[in-house]
């Protein structure tokens, strides 16, 4: 009704300055206008997000790579290698885990340690766990690369916030036994956190799967790389 009267009024004074204004005001009350306006807002915000995503994507990838390298240095001790761990990663196609990128530490052309990522699913989604494993299948170290667990409860899997993650160092599938690779609540030997069981359960599960992956692919993992990219000057 308002629309009709406004249009009629506008038709009476087609040249008056209020004519366009009247049309716009009338249009703004129509349901289609709400839809269009909301659609415009959605388009604008989508545009902003797309632009920012494009601007930041490269930098975010660089930061993730830097984090990976820094964590690699923590799970592969310096004194067991004479190569650059990040050079010449190996990609293994595992029947259960899919393609896994493996970084290798070499000394005198022999593999002295391997490092690779496993994914666990915690309370807040993906948890990326980096494992360092020596040639006998013993853990050199474990670090959580990224996660979205609840601050104050689940984030104790970070090395910066708790020493829980250091517990894994030196363990293997035989130590503790296969049945003990669970959190205590599930009858295993790993502590959960007060208020957070799902996060440590996911991390313990991911580490266990990582060790099983090592067991399945041990020969391929330990085979000396064909092209010896090991550079002696590397620190």
């Amino acid at each position: 009704m308002t629309e009709g009267s406004a249009v009629a009024e506008a038709a009476e004074h087609p040249a008056s300055p209020g004519w366009l204004r009247g049309r716009i005001d009338a249009f703004r009350t129509a349901p289609i206008a709400h839809g269009l306006l909301l659609g415009l807002f959605s388009l604008l915000t989508a545009l902003v997000l797309a632009v920012v995503n494009d601007l930041t994507r490269g930098a975010i990838e660089d930061r993730a790579t830097e984090d990976l390298y820094a964590s690699l240095a923590q799970v592969i001790p310096d004194d067991i290698r004479d190569n650059e761990v990040t050079a010449g990663p190996l990609t293994l196609d595992d029947p259960q885990e899919g393609p896994v990128t493996v970084y290798r530490a070499l000394q005198g052309g022999k593999v002295t340690g391997t490092a690779y990522e496993m994914i666990g699913y915690g309370y807040g989604g993906r948890i990326e766990v980096l494992l360092g494993v020596d040639p006998d299948g013993q853990l050199l170290g474990v670090r959580v690369l990224s996660h979205a667990e609840t601050p104050g409860l689940g984030d104790k899997v970070e090395a910066a916030k708790s020493d829980w993650i250091f517990r894994f160092t030196g363990l293997s599938l035989g130590n503790p036994g296969p049945d003990a690779w669970k959190v205590k609540r599930d009858g295993g030997s790993f502590d959960q956190f007060s208020g957070a069981t799902i996060t440590p359960r996911a991390v313990v599960g991911a580490v266990r799967r990582g060790l099983e992956f090592f067991g399945r692919n041990q020969p391929a993992l330990l085979a000396a790389p064909a092209d010896t990219t090991a550079s002696p000057e590397a620190k």
């Binding site: 807002f41 959605s42 915000t45 902003v48 997000l49 920012v52 995503n53 601007l55 930041t56 930098a59 975010i60 930061r63």
Partner: peptide
């Protein structure tokens, strides 16, 4: 929409820079 957009932009910008 505006709030979700701002939060996401802040998240991405902090992560990158």
């Amino acid at each position: 929409l505006v709030i979700a957009c701002i939060v996401t932009v802040v998240d991405m910008a902090l992560n990158a820079w």
